[in-house]
Amino acid sequence: MPRLPLLIDTDTGSDDAVALLLAVSGGDVRAVTTVAGNVPLPTATRNALITLELAGHSGIPVHPGCDRPMTRPPSTAQHVHGPDGMGDTGLPDPAGRPADGHAVDVLLTLPRSRPGELTLVTLGPLTNLAAALLRDRELLTRFRHVYCMAGAADLCGNVSPTAEYNVWADPEAAAVVLRAATPGRVTWIGWDVSRRYAVMTPGDQRRLEALGTPLAAFAHRINRAVADWARDVTGLAGYNLPDPVAMAVALHPELVLGSERAHVAVALGDETRGQLVIDRRRAAPPPNLTLVRQVDEPGFKRLLLDALTPACLTEGPA
């Protein structure tokens, strides 16, 4: 069966890196674009290169993009992922270098050359995609589908009481994407999904360690800082994996057990910054998004462990 052609936009922190491992295991990644978010742009680009090299896919081009939100100063999540975005595990510099070409140009040109072929998966703030949409209002129609790890449909946030980080970090960009979105083409998988269906419990973590592969060891090590934050701040029974579960849905839509179509906007005010405004009234405007609400948790975790089981082509950190 042909692998799903993917274009991935990421602010590569620790869970983004695991999502990249899932992507190269089950998809055909044509390019990776990076954006400021979890970490500054150079760090996000470095982490993407490291991850792809570890997985034996150094040939995938990594294109740096926007280094700050559209109108706001940058606000990283290094307090969650560590200053290096990878749990401060002392990863060596990548052998490769970023590819030529700005991420926004790549987002514009690749789908034009392959209309309807590529699936776009965004794992960070939506700055690159919004910048591309300002140049091509029909851009979303050129992809087979667009999946975004974005928002919190239950209004239980991780960076504020009601907002998820990717939307909160650049809400103006999220608003641009929402104005262009249609539910048959754009699906958001939010923080609420990972908090309920993608938590790596202590038992899951032991199973991950027991795989004994370089990829599994890498995935476990880089998420140790996130595990501490999840325990102390969100009170989860382990660390959750928002970006990997979003990637899993893109690769295997059959994992979705519940979803809704709704008209969604985003709050831009200081007190409610990044909160989704979901209009479920009978008289609401037409839906613009599909919101994933429930995922097959055992199926997701099997997929994750399977992706980390094959021996890596290059030795990674133990």
Results as ranks from 00 to 15, higher is better:
153 A>Y: 15
279 D>G: 07
170 D>F: 01
207 R>D: 11
222 I>V: 15
97 R>E: 14
151 G>Y: 00
10 T>L: 13
104 V>P: 00
118 L>N: 01
144 R>Q: 12
256 V>P: 02
153 A>I: 06
201 T>Q: 08
108 L>Y: 05
185 R>M: 13
233 V>D: 09
14 S>V: 05
10 T>Y: 04
175 A>T: 00
312 C>L: 15
59 G>F: 14
211 L>R: 11
60 I>Q: 04
235 G>M: 11
5 P>H: 08
67 D>I: 10
25 S>R: 13
153 A>F: 14
291 L>M: 11
100 D>G: 14
317 P>G: 15
160 S>L: 11
117 E>A: 11
236 L>R: 05
176 V>C: 08
167 V>G: 00
223 N>H: 13
243 D>V: 04
252 H>Y: 08
289 L>P: 00
224 R>Y: 10
109 T>K: 11
40 P>W: 07
67 D>A: 15
1 M>G: 15
18 V>P: 00
287 P>H: 07
311 A>H: 10
68 R>F: 07
63 H>L: 12
247 M>R: 03
119 T>R: 03
63 H>I: 12
253 P>D: 05
174 A>G: 14
26 G>P: 03
196 R>S: 12
14 S>Y: 03
180 A>Y: 04
306 D>N: 13
115 P>V: 12
270 D>W: 07
32 V>C: 06
216 A>G: 14
86 M>I: 05
173 A>W: 00
252 H>L: 07
214 P>A: 10
282 R>S: 10
153 A>H: 12
22 L>D: 02
45 T>I: 09
208 L>H: 04
134 L>Q: 14
231 R>C: 12
138 E>M: 06
56 G>V: 06
48 A>M: 08
125 P>M: 14
45 T>M: 08
163 A>V: 03
